[in-house]
Amino acid sequence: MSTSMPARAVRLLAGLALFGVSVGLLVRADLGLASWDVLHQGLAARTGLPMGLLVNGVALVVLLLWIPLRQRPGVGTVANVALVGLALDATLALLPPVGALVGRVPLLLAGILLNGVATALYLGARLGPGPRDGLMTGLAARGLPIGRVRTLIELVVLAIGWLLGGTVGPGTLLFALAIGPLVQYLAPRFTAPAPVRPAPTGVTPPCPA
């Protein structure tokens, strides 16, 4: 049975909100940024432009990469840009910086796990991936394992960001290595069933086996 549109919308919004929370946890852990944020920070250091502006600029470039992959943006693509930042800012406002390492390590692990759950949730809503995840799903649609694709993208972005001067820490490497297998494991468990289309007029639908 297919999942209703309201249920898929709730899944999308919950996933995007949790994604913002997960990024906030990683920021407060202060043990290394996620790969894309290392790239954004490195670009900011090289150009002198605000990091937030570069986040949007990189998203636009990534969307252009969708064209040869025949990916189409959806409601989730737009919502990704609007909601994740709000959830991130709210998390940082509510969660003060943590000084002790014994408190930062659990934040790091929770942030990575929550990021995997959030990604699986909003991708599973089937309402359009975010710009960066659309690149991942587009490549996976060409027959590549989604876990390997995600890991490869994270490592390439991480390397470029580090060469540009972005901050890399142990949490960065752990995120890059763990997020692909996490998404690969969780995505099938959070994916909404595809909508069932009615049979054309005059055609008798097949009986269930």
Rank of each mutant, 00 (worst) to 15 (best):
R70Y: 07
A100S: 12
P145V: 10
R142T: 11
L123M: 13
A194L: 15
R11L: 15
G42C: 02
S35P: 00
A44D: 03
V84Y: 01
R72H: 14
G24K: 05
T201L: 14
V98H: 04
A87S: 14
L186T: 09
W66F: 10
A140P: 02
G147T: 10
R150M: 01
P188C: 11
G171V: 03
W66Q: 07
L101T: 12
I146W: 03
A82S: 11
V84C: 11
L182F: 09
V27M: 09
L64A: 14
G116H: 04
L109C: 05
W36Q: 11
L31E: 01
Y122M: 05
R126T: 08
L127N: 00
V84P: 01
T137P: 03
L158H: 07
T172Q: 00
G111I: 04
V23N: 11
P50Y: 07
A14Y: 00
T119F: 03
P129Q: 05
L49M: 15
A159S: 13
P6T: 13
L177W: 10
L92P: 00
L114A: 13
L107P: 05
V55A: 13
L155P: 08
P206T: 15
L101A: 12
N115R: 06
N80A: 07
R148I: 03
A44Q: 04
P106G: 08
A187R: 03
A29E: 06
L94Q: 09
L33C: 04
R150Q: 12
G138P: 04
L12W: 09
A45P: 03
V78S: 11
P205N: 10
V117G: 04
P131W: 09
E154C: 13
G143Y: 08
A194W: 09
A110G: 11
R104V: 08
G32H: 03
L86E: 12
L144A: 14
Q71L: 11
L173E: 01
G180R: 07
G20A: 07
L113C: 14
L33V: 02
L60C: 08
Q41A: 12
R46I: 08
S35R: 01
L33M: 14
A17G: 10
G99F: 04
L94R: 12
V23E: 06
G52A: 13
L158I: 05
A59N: 15
G76Y: 12
A178G: 09
I160K: 06
R28C: 02
P96A: 09
T47Y: 06
L26P: 05
Q71A: 09
L135T: 04
N80I: 12
T191F: 03
A178R: 05
P50L: 01
L26V: 14
V81W: 06
P73R: 02
I179Q: 02
A199L: 11
G171K: 00
E154V: 08
G124T: 06
P198E: 10
L13E: 03
T151P: 03
S22T: 05
L53T: 14
V157Q: 05
I67W: 13
M1L: 10
L53M: 14
T119Y: 01
R72W: 12
Q41I: 01
L43N: 05
T3Y: 07
R8F: 13
L12A: 10
P200Q: 14
P73M: 06
L186Q: 09
P97K: 01
